[in-house]
Design a protein around this nucleic acid. Sequence first.
DNA 1: CATGAAAGTGTAGACCC
DNA 2: GGGTCTACACTTTCATG
Lengths: 153, 153
Amino acid sequence: MAKILKEIDETDRKILGELERNGRLSISTLAARVGMSGPSVTDRIRRMENTGIIRNFTVDIDVAELGYELAAIVRIKPRPGSLHIVEKMICDEPRFTSCDAVTGDDCFVCRLAFRAMKDLDGILQPFHDRAETNTAIVKSSPVRNRLPTERTL
Amino acid sequence: MAKILKEIDETDRKILGELERNGRLSISTLAARVGMSGPSVTDRIRRMENTGIIRNFTVDIDVAELGYELAAIVRIKPRPGSLHIVEKMICDEPRFTSCDAVTGDDCFVCRLAFRAMKDLDGILQPFHDRAETNTAIVKSSPVRNRLPTERTL
DNA sequence: CATGAAAGTGTAGACCC
DNA sequence: GGGTCTACACTTTCATG
């Protein structure tokens, strides 16, 4: 995948930038901002959805406001033979909000959202049969989910 | 913050769930799905925007399709006295797409997007004066940025 | 990629419980 | 206070050049 490398021009980039800041922008204001007609913008968005550049339109929710006031980075290193089971256990625990499989000593680096300190042990305990875990509590998030760029803006 | 703990009911949750799956859903279809009138739904969304539950509407972009085909988890441990400088350096390098400050041995856990293996050294080299870094290449992402829930759906 | 007409959608005000 | 209804304005869409 990521092989088609479709020609993505400046206009497409500008559309993506605007939509990243406000995913519900109307086609018409979007068209005005990039200097094009509505149908053209609609066309470009649909094309980017089809090629997979745009994965999804979504909403950025502050999970702390939903009661999940704590977050942790949990590194999980399955013991030999338990890799797939552990991966499934991670996927099945919905308080893991993201998980990357990585090279190196740890196999999984996960983000965990939880309500109170006392919940942490209960969430991680099932893993201790099949993996070693290393937990770091998140104090703050200086950078949150932005788009990479080559140049510093 | 996160102190107001506004009464968020089942309808609100359902709206958030639908918008997470498709942030550009029209008010009318949203209204139909939650069994309410359009203006009510608009009202609830605006309220959640004001209280901060909804941080932003945005678009989920596959950065690999933009040419950033590689990702890494970089743990960064500033040397004594360099904490704030290092934090600023992280924020100023736009290829760091997220960064959490955490407790424990490492201070920062960051996600890095980059185009080619040969770029990695150049990105991290400026840090080696002021910090120790530990880099793990992302092989896959079994869980990607989902909402936490108490019950397994 | 732009235009113009037709269909659909969002918004605001008055009203109701 | 929160929800609904109606009507007008705006926006999106589709066919066409």
